[in-house]
Amino acid sequence: MEVTAPPPHDGGLAVSDVVVNYGPVRALRGVSLRVPPGSIVTVLGTNGAGKTTLLRAISGTLRFHRGGIAAGTVTWAGERLSGIPAPAVVARGVTQVPEGRRVFGRMTVEDNLRAGALGAGGGRAAAQAREQVHSLFPVLAERAHQRAGLLSGGEQQMLAIGRALMARPSLLLLDEPTLGLAPLVAARIAETIRQINADGTSVLLIEQNAATALSLASYAYVLEVGEVALEGPTTELALGDEVRRRYLGVTDAPGDGAGRPGPPGDGGARRPAARPRPALARWFA
């Protein structure tokens, strides 16, 4: 029953029924999602929902955490990504900005960018990419010879994104890019993501900050304990009761939840029909 999928498309990212285990621990229980070419899609969820695991499954870094894809496939533009090592994923145009930035702190800003270009050959392409990154983040050009560890949090995030862009990806995977940043800086990062997307790069955005994510993305998935609990176009999801309550921090007065007037049902957000609706009462407890 493919009622949950976005409009049919060719290419793009297709995650199909992916099951991920870390040893005996099952982290993803059959997750499917799509990122159409040129779009921004977001995945929301609380801590431990499996968001980062999902990105690891796409970028091929599960093996660093003693995990593996037990079932399902990941494809990008028709090419299979599941089962190939991380550098091969980069070579196919999919680059991840890791959670917590993870810049190479003891290397200079310039060398960080060079490291980002290593996966995509070098020479002219790298020089062009560097120019793009510098125009996107002028501060990285100013601080080219400074050690990356000395940058502020926001600048480190810019470096992490710039470093990933050096590989000239067609799909950028972002893991909580606004985590721990001041609101103003977070807004700047969000604006940059919009611009990167406008330049033709598809984006899969993992976020806990639902307001930012929903404003950027066109389609959203909500992960819960390793499963897609909810999905839909962001215009509809943003209005939906459940997302508002869970992720936007909009709380109703206790007791008001059941009889609350407002958009009927989910406000248009669709959920997999086979799965039971999570009990709302949990979220008020």
Binding site: F64, A86, P87, V90, A91, T95, A115, G116
Partner: peptide, 11 residues
């Protein structure tokens, strides 16, 4: 410095 991130960069 960070093997996993290096791999993410295509190294």
């Amino acid at each position: 410095e960070d093997a996993e991130t290096a791999a993410l960069m295509g190294i």
